[in-house]
Amino acid sequence: MLLTPEIITILALDFIFLFFGTIAFFISIRIARYWDLNSTTPLQYKLEKQSFLVATIIKYIFVVKLPLFLFFIFTANKLSNVIVGAMCAAGVVNSVSFGSAMFFYKILNLYIFGFWLVLNHFDLKNENQPYTRYKFLLYAIGFIFLLVEIYLDIDFFTSLDVSKLVSCCGALFSAASTSSFSFIFTVNKLYFVYIFYAIFVLLMISYIFKNAFVVLSLNLIYVFIAIISLIVFFGTYIYQLPTHHCPFCMLQKNYDYIGYVVYITLYIGTFFGISGAIMSILEKKKEKFYYNVSAIFNVIYAIIISAYPITYYIKHGAWL
């Protein structure tokens, strides 16, 4: 096990999350079971008050988790200097068998916890608090997810091994790789580019008509196609190397940390799209604010990501 200050930091905060998350979990279960706004029993008053403790804890966890996740990537990038063979976070993350899965899992949790806050916001807007039960049930599930994440963190850091040779991202993100997503490199990459822009256009149209189900599904598809096209096509223009497909290297200093900008805009855009659409369905009313934020960030993402191949073409008069 590596005992670097970064790892200790992450584990210490994990411990805090665990402590407060557990308290919130038990309260949530109670609220989900006994919540009754019409009742005037002392238990109901108590639960009303405790619901704020849970909300505060979840806000806290989410607000600390967001930057901590970036810090996690940052740490993985740094560990790549220590671990033989790794060039960036990809090598480090994939040095354990569940690395990639853990990574996507962490992102999924960010969506869940973020959505919880949105649901909470809507719940507290209405005197009938229509979502209280659901939001606490959602948290109870989210807590299980959190537990697994903390377990994975610990397992990940304890199984990191400086002396073990790991693959660098060049090997992981190529057609020759044995990983589950290697098939994407065998397809003509232009297909993904066409699909990306097609989805993007459909998404923009969907913001005009604001059909929640359409916005929701297109945002979900958009995340996936955005990441795949980033790996197979757009990333190569960030690196200016037709063979460099790594989604992690762009988070490093050599590329001005552009990866952080790219992923954060994608996260904000799709997060607001997805949660806005779900809330539109629940509230039976079009959540314009969420759609607007979503549209703006999704456009920013598309602009940033398109700028790379276009400037390349203008400079060199040819595609990579």
Partner: peptide
């Protein structure tokens, strides 16, 4: 909050409101 009965202000049942409301 009343133990029994209700309090209504401007048509709003304030005796049923949760603490923050």
């Amino acid at each position: 909050k009343p133990t029994i009965g209700e309090v209504i202000v401007d048509g709003k049942r304030v005796s049923k409101l949760a603490d923050n409301f």
